[in-house]
Nucleic acid binder design. Structure first.
Lengths: 186, 186
DNA sequence: TTAAAATAGTGACGTAGATCAACTTCGCCT
DNA sequence: AGGCGAAGTTGATCTACGTCACTATTTTAA
């Protein structure tokens, strides 16, 4: 009754044996609240699937302002994708907001997995297309919607997030100051 | 000496025979300036690779304001990805700004191609990861940079675009009015 | 070839959200 | 349990960009 198997089966059907084989390519980690998974300037050799917990990836711009790139809760993947795919150093920080349980996949194991198990290459292709569309929707929301509307959409996408995460983090995801967000809530 | 073969070889090496086989899955179209490749509300059954020309995909929001999603010039892929991958209707319009020559790949042919030629599944996986990262960089630029800076970055990414495209289209890509863009140029 | 439409530039004014500052409340740590 | 830093609220201004209105120029199509 693995949540990870269910997750993979969103895109590809798997036998128990296939799933067991796939799991060999992953390792497992547990992190406590406020520990870092990735820090700015590190080489990024892994992508991560969140079994349990809550993490954020963030970017600090040249004015020292922090922007939230992504929330990752149960069943989400997270890494600094630019650094991971291009084998360069992180520009993002990824930190735990809650104690977390994480499956880890190294770059070389991911390539091996894709070569050894064609279904997994299909999975990653579909997943990447899906992520692209979601990212594009976020950009579109950014371009077309008022802050209040973007806030409502965020809470609709992650119900209960407002209770798990400081408001200033929500504001930094929406691209406004905490003062502005505070004036919008009632 | 095919530009398309070179394009595929950015991610995967190909023999002439393999390339010839791959080409079988595509069809070819020519469009004149101002003709539509995809119109809002149509079913989207193809993704397109631009051999020559210039197209834009755009989205018209509930206030009637037009937003430019993407410019597609030589060697770019373009479609309404949300509609294409999820087999639904277009929310974007895609129109030619210049006479264009286009390779077309249907959804079912793409799936067949991925199943028949594993290298092409690898190509599309890598390409999708790459597109995701580029999209994420655009969102980040949106969140962190002033309009003037975003304008300069756009022209750096597509040199000569300012000469090929009406200014109001550039403004709609940057998410500002044509008046504001006009005041930034010197 | 010329009229109409689309594109572009500029000024005056309006507004959403930023910035700064003061105050309150919450959560963590020994 | 109580002290301290982080988080959140609220008010007063500031500012980047939007809106509207008018004019000039370029493109399109009959």
């Amino acid at each position: 009754m693995s949540a990870f198997k269910n997750h993979l089966e969103l895109f590809i059907p798997l036998s128990e044996q296939e799933f067991d084989q796939i799991l060999q390519y992953f390792s497992y980690r547990e992190l406590k609240k406020s520990e870092y998974l990735i820090q700015n300037d590190q080489l990024v050799d892994h992508t991560y699937w969140i079994k349990k917990g809550l993490l954020i990836s963030s970017f600090t711009d040249s004015n020292g302002k922090e922007h939230i790139i992504q929330f990752a809760i149960e069943n989400c993947w997270i890494t600094d994708q630019d650094a991971y795919y291009n084998r360069t150093r992180a520009t993002f920080n990824i930190v735990c907001l809650e104690d977390s349980e994480i499956l880890c996949l190294s770059y070389s194991n991911r390539e091996k997995l894709c070569a050894d198990v064609p279904k997994m290459e299909t999975f990653f292709r579909r997943k990447a297309n899906d992520s692209f569309v979601k990212q594009q929707r976020r950009l579109l929301t950014y371009m077309t919607s008022e802050v209040k509307e973007r806030y409502d959409l965020l809470l609709k996408e992650y119900p209960g997030l407002a209770q798990r995460v400081p408001k200033k983090i929500l504001a930094a995801y929406l691209g406004v100051t905490r003062e502005t967000l505070s004036r919008f809530r009632y």
